[in-house]
Design a binder for these strands. Sequence first.
RNA 1: GCGCCCGUAGCUCAACCGGAUAGAGCAGCGGCCUUCUAAGCCGCCGGUUGCAGGUUCAAGUCCUGCCGGGCGCGCCA
Length: 547
Amino acid sequence: MDLRPYLEAAFRAAAEQAGFSGASLQKIIFQKPARPEHGDWATNVALRLAPEVGLPPREVARRLVEHLELDPARIARVEVAGPGFINLFYAPAFLHAVLAEILSRGEEYGRSESNRGRRALVEFVSANPTGPLTVGHGRNAVLGDAIARLLACTGYEVTREYYFNNAGRQMRLLAESVRARYLELLGKPVDFPEEGYQGEYIRDIAHALLEEHGDGLADTEDLAIFKETAERMIFAEIVRTLERLSIRMDSFFNEHSLYESGAIWRVIDRLRERDLIYEAEGAIWFRGTALGRHRDVVLVKSTGEPTYRLPDIAYHINKLERGYDLIIDVFGADHIDTYPDVLAAVGALGYPTERIRVLIYQFVTLLKDGQPYKMSTRRATFVTLDELIDEVGADVTRFFFLMRSPGTHLEFDLDLAREASEKNPVFYLQYAHARIASIVRKAQEVGVRFREHPAYERLLHPHEITLMKALVDLPGVIEEAAEHLEPHRVIVYLNEVAAAFHRFYHECRILGEEPELASARMHLAQATRLVLRNGLAVLGVSAPEQM
RNA sequence: GCGCCCGUAGCUCAACCGGAUAGAGCAGCGGCCUUCUAAGCCGCCGGUUGCAGGUUCAAGUCCUGCCGGGCGCGCCA
């Protein structure tokens, strides 16, 4: 249970009682001190308030504490420390109450209602159907899905959307590549398109066409059948790959629908009304520089064909008009210089762009034979996400992409993939979960029972206390991870929980202890199991009953 | 050249909105299985947080400048 909202209210009331006011009271920050002697929560509010009220920090802290009214069943002790920190210590009764809460809420523990009634749309993957998903797409897919899960945990109603483009040069090239392979299969000499897609999957699609149509397509000039078949088969494959990672999209949004509805041309009209459009060299330009961008960009080429930015603007307007309170875009680092143009245009048309949050993650660097490996879908020099899942499994794949913060480069050594998976931290968490499941089974076999009123007050061992304190944090960690769009925070936290459990396990036995203590410890173990399971569920990683 | 991101232990990474003595895993060394799962636990080793300034009671975190790496800078998506 996250005490911070409660503490913040109490401190604000105390400040008022003490006659303090200042900007630093707007948001009072509570942190978990690194050292246990500094308490379970600490706040620097007195340090920040001191210059605003013209008193020494420790004096401010002293007066705040004097007026502070806290429930002794939650916080047992308050101390002023160091330069003026206020440290707070949990009451044992609070820890016991949290244990009871975890056990009664079960799979619901960790979920909150803080965003109840709000709707979020997470757009991710969004790979065009020109080939299988690669390891590079994996980070996007897993990150997007984990963020969707996190948002759902805080009460959002979440839609997962996949935006794609099935028109244009890439798709034409794809269709031409399929046709070339098809003609090859018919034994007809053919020039493979110079920039064509060389992957083996193109041959598979050609085979499917051969089986369905025989040589009936040999003379057809229309690429449509090749394109449509390729698109359908590739999408089916993508959906299957995502499914293997427990990712299910709610919606596929075709960029082309923005052409059909005329939405893109309305964007041009509306930008023109605001004098943000001009024509030069036969092209239509967006005056980004008028909005603080460092350059203007082309929205419609001199050929009359829009660049991708125009539908992008229309797409974001569409998302906002669908009424989402929060819109997340998960983009690779290559979008870093383009999305601000889109946001600038959308904002200039009067839309609330603060609802849009763009998560830019850094690329996955693939190492092969210790060397960086350049992937290209067109040249078929990619490693597919499926191959990775085959190699290390879905849990490890997901965990691997979530372990690091999105902003750091992720180095992926293929040659060590399998080896690394055997010592992957994911097993550390799953092992703890399986271990608990086993203990609880055994304990119940020998007659240890869950009770209505467990003797939590018997849990006095330092490892028991540390573990209980860790379990308290799950809801707050999920809240913060969702707020910052950083699933790795959950992993860091679960590692602490698992470590605390393993230590408890080595020092505190259940079997062979007297019934009251054994039962209390079994409750603690079971609560730990629930925290691990719920935390892993947010990450989309399984929690095995045995290993 | 310009813009954004990154630079923390030998390696891969944490460090919550600027907090108190910068933490894990892996690698290395040494211990712990006749009792609930050793995929575990305990200990040791390992740091001028790229460099130089600045702001602050307090800087890995903010600012400036350099150095190094990634990505972008197309009427490609």
